[in-house]
Nucleic acid binder design. Structure first.
Length: 862
RNA sequence: GCCGGGAUGGCGGAAUUGGCAGACGCAGUGGACUCAAAAUCCACCGGAUCGGAAGAUUCUUGCGGGUUCGACUCCCGCUCCCGGCACCA
């Protein structure tokens, strides 16, 4: 064993040993318990960032730990390879997205390998490979057959200059990020997946996921958003147009307080009125330019214009004015809402602004009501007042009575609605999975027959930022109708990339099968036992995967309802954001490493090192390619080695917390590794240790051995149960400090040390697998650590004769006393009261009460 | 705006079921080694008051209340920060 720790000598050699032994190739083996450990696969953005390192190190530690527990472990890796960044890079560098993506994959795969993750690379997949995405297409066709996939219109951001659809991310302050043009809304035909059909099941099943974090289950439940309410209709007869304006409300009890209704700009009534009113026309046009993002909609100034039209109140028959509101979304519900200014904060503000009447119709436990200013209790449940026949009824009674009356008139009924909306999957983009549809002038939209799958995406196109290049590619576009054989055109929309990531975990377990989407191997490995990924995926990706799994189940492809047994949501890795915002065009971001921060003593003032000019501080945010605030882990690996990079990312912070990046800290991890190496080396230099004879140990040796076994128990619990890797590592650091002080070179002392170092190397091996292997050899073992079992602790070693307990007087710490382990209350009481530090504060006062927590504390209440 | 989460020394964090606040690490200070530096090793390291020191007392877990023998932990009301909001992935 060398006297200096040199990661550059150790790591490639150990990786070569794993490779030669085929250590990480997973084979289905019904005789062994399986463990499928999966990290969310990366988008091949170009280089690994610290978020990846954190994610994959967590997964790798768990995979290696479970393997040491005797499980047959599968840890695969792949690439979420379709997406927008490849198109942006293509425009910038004039290379096809395919080339850019595959180059990135090659580079990042090398980076992952250098970090020594225990990955079964034989199962690698990339979603941009036709072998993979053909099954997206295949299942999409099954969904069409079952009515789960359907076509309707949807709203998109439209850049009128580039004549192209923009992603939300590409809209900045209402303008296209490349052109700066005001973005418009457009209604275009799109394919949707009927996830709402599974809403009830997706909600109910959350209760059967005890090993998911509560916060994720809560977020999903709220996202699905079951609410009970009443669907009702306001009839109208306007210039010969008879109809009903439909709205949904969860507060039918306030119906007698309705003083207006508001419709979306795209609503037929708005269109009708705009035709004869220039002011309204202008407003409707303005609304069309608004954002399609919910966050914008919820925070923008609520504006409205009266249409001059009115509808009839479904209960009273009174005339109710119709307004157009910029906050009403056509795509949401019926595109209309009823306005109850008395009991809805938004309606209250709207009524104040436009001088509409405010009618209080609910009394909340006698709390005062004034139309002067909104008070939070106005929106609470109460008892109906000024509501004619409903006076005195509470929320439930009023809702029931009103629903009954509406039903009798044929103007409404109770209904359960979901916040969840169907999943629109059409993207007007090139770098994605083609939707397998052919448009025939005579037969209409014709699904591509199974035997013509996959519909291959051409890989040689270079987008230019205007429109979808597929729509300009004759070779792709022109085809024959599968039904009638006439000349036809292919659908040029591709699928949302969330489709790709909704089932890749099945495919890892059916790698290489070119005849079926999944096979029997998936039945062996699935469900994923432990899934690990960023908290930012808590809703969409996980919900889509749960949905997709159920569709596969209903198509007979799996028996599972849920794909992920246990979920760990790692916190994000954050870093500072620095940018410059030019008068026109897109914002320029700079990596924090390029910034000199702290000018004028203010950490939020900075200049760009290269030109000395000021840059703006954008706060702390997630590391992302678009904001250029990533940290390159390669620097860390080259400087300290993979083991230090791994150790560092697992130290200090629990995995679920956000991690604010700082350049300091890696040194500490590196120092620990070097100290561990040194103590192992020093021990090995002393020659082979004798066999451990527990009965022959003296007091200090027994104490040392107790600490070793206590640490072993703690590390196992922290990794196996709590997943708090930071405290596990802290425990090993504490133990190393204790071992450093344990200078006992007697034969028995060296035997204790040998056991301690063997354990230390084994329990740290999931985190620092290369160094652990080298030290394991040094300690005299011929085997590969990856094939070793987790060490068993000796219960006898943990036994303590006396324990220290804390004595409080009136809840304040006054003394520590030693009592025999297992002492009863009488003994503890006597010992506590006898202590001078305690007696001082008791000072002869009678003891009113005494609380004794065995082995921990005595609290004397006087 | 809505949904979810967070806040503990100079910094990251620990305290697992309501029971010793500050484990472990970083930074810092002092010392040893060295011609010197780096590296390494040793000691100290939340604030205040008293004390030569050992130590003692007291305050302290974002802010304001509450429950309890006892609250970082539970409850109520705030503030600020982070994630998500359906076309970034």
């Amino acid at each position: 064993m060398k006297d200096r720790y040199e990661s550059k000598d150790i790591e490639p050699a150990v990786q070569a040993e794993w490779e030669a032994a085929g250590s990480f190739a997973a084979r289905e083996d019904a005789a062994k318990p399986k463990y499928y450990c999966l990290c969310m696969f990366p988008y091949p953005s170009g280089r690994l960032h610290m978020g990846h390192v954190r994610n994959y190190t967590i997964g790798d530690v768990l995979a290696r730990y479970m393997r040491m527990q005797g499980y047959n472990v599968l840890q695969p890796m792949g690439w979420d390879a379709f997406g927008l960044p490849a198109e942006n890079a293509a425009i910038e560098n004039n290379v096809p997205p395919a080339k850019w993506t595959r180059d990135n994959i090659r580079h990042m795969k090398g980076q992952l390998k250098s970090l020594g993750f225990a990955i079964d690379w034989s199962r690698e997949l990339a979603t941009c490979d036709a072998d993979y995405y053909r099954w997206n297409q295949w299942l999409f066709l099954r969904m069409l057959e079952r009515g789960i996939a359907y076509k309707t219109t949807g709203t998109v951001n439209w850049d009128p200059v580039d004549q192209t659809v923009l992603a939300n991310e590409q809209v900045i302050d209402g303008r296209g990020w490349r052109t700066g043009a005001l973005v418009e809304k457009r209604e275009i035909p799109m394919y949707y997946l009927r996830i709402t059909q599974y809403a009830e099941e997706l909600l109910a099943a959350l209760d059967r996921l005890p090993d998911w974090p509560d916060r994720v289950r809560t977020m999903q439940a709220n996202w699905i958003g079951r609410s009970e309410g009443v669907n009702l209709a306001f009839p109208y007869d306007i210039a010969g147009n008879r109809g009903e304006l439909k709205v949904f409300t969860t507060r039918a009890d306030t119906i007698m307080g309705v003083t207006f209704v508001a419709v979306a700009a795209e609503h037929p009534l708005a269109e009708l009125a705009a035709g004869r009113d220039a002011k309204l026309r202008a407003f409707v046009d303005e609304c069309r330019r608004g954002s399609i993002m919910e966050a914008d909609l919820a925070t923008m100034e609520k504006k409205g214009v009266a249409t001059g039209l009115s509808v009839r109140h479904p209960i009273t028959g009174a005339e109710v004015p119709v307004w157009v509101g910029n906050y009403v979304l056509m795509a949401y519900g019926e595109g209309a809402v009823m306005g109850v200014p008395g009991h809805d904060e938004r309606d209250f503000a709207f009524a104040k602004k436009y001088g509409l009447p405010i009618l209080p119709v609910i009394d909340v436990a006698g709390k005062p009501y004034s139309t002067d200013a909104w008070q939070p209790w106005y929106a609470e449940y109460g008892v109906c007042v000024h509501s004619g026949p409903y006076d005195g009824l509470d929320f439930n009674a009023a809702t029931n009575a009103i629903a009954k009356d509406l039903e009798a008139k044929g103007l409404g009924r109770k209904q359960v609605v979901w916040r969840l909306r169907d999943w629109g999957i059409s993207r007007q983009r090139y770098w994605g999975c083609p939707i397998p549809i052919i448009h025939c002038p005579t037969c209409g939209d014709v699904p591509v027959p199974d035997d013509q799958l996959p519909v291959r995406l051409p890989e040689d196109l270079v987008p230019d930022g205007s429109g979808n290049p597929l729509a300009k590619s004759k070779a792709f576009l022109e085809c024959r109708c599968p039904k009638c054989g006439a000349a036809a055109r292919r659908e040029t929309d591709t699928m949302d990339t969330f489709v790709d990531s909704s089932w890749y975990f099945f495919r890892f377990a059916s790698a290489g099968n070119d005849r079926a989407m999944v096979d029997g191997r998936a039945a062996y490995w699935l469900p994923v036992d432990q899934y690990i990924g960023g908290i930012e995926h808590a809703i969409l990706h996980l919900l889509y995967s749960r949905f997709w799994t159920r569709v596969m189940r209903d198509c007979g492809l799996t028996d599972l309802d849920e794909p992920f047994q246990r979920l760990l949501t790692q916190g994000m890795v954050l870093n500072e954001i620095w940018f410059r915002k030019p008068a026109t065009g897109r914002i320029a971001y700079y990596n924090p490493a390029e910034i000199e921060a702290g000018g004028e003593g203010d950490a939020r003032k900075g200049v760009l090192k290269s030109d000395g000019q000021p840059v703006e501080y954008g706060g702390i945010g997630t590391m992302s390619k678009s904001r250029k605030n990533g940290v390159d882990p390669q620097d860390l690996v080259e400087r300290y080695g993979a083991d230090t990079a791994r150790l560092f990312t697992m130290s200090n912070v629990p995995p679920e917390h956000t991690f604010e990046w700082s350049d300091e800290g890696a040194e500490g991890a590196f120092r620990f590794l070097k100290r561990l190496w040194k103590i192992v080396h020093a021990h090995v230099e002393g020659g082979p240790a004798q066999e451990l004879d527990v009965a022959a140990l003296d007091g200090p040796q027994r104490d040392m051995r107790r600490q070793v076994h206590q640490a072993l128990v703690k590390v196992g619990d922290d990794i196996g149960r709590r997943r708090t890797f930071n405290t596990a590592i802290a425990a090993t650091m504490e133990l190393l400090n204790a071992l450093g002080r344990f200078a006992d070179s007697s034969p028995a002392g060296r035997a204790v040390m040998q056991e301690a170092l063997d354990f230390m190397v084994l329990v740290l091996s999931p985190v620092i697998p290369h160094a652990a292997q080298a030290m394991w050899r040094g300690l005299g073992h011929a085997t590969l650590v990856v094939d070793e079992r987790w060490p068993q602790h000796d219960p006898a070693a943990l036994v303590q004769e006396t324990v220290e307990i804390v004595v409080q007087v009136n809840g304040r710490l006054r003394a520590r006393i030693a009592v025999a382990a297992g002492a009863d209350e009488a003994i503890a009481r006597e010992a506590a009261l006898a202590d001078p530090g305690v007696a001082k504060f008791v000072a002869g006062q009678p003891v009113r009460k005494l609380i004794y927590v065995p082995g921990k504390l005595v609290n004397v209440v006087v």
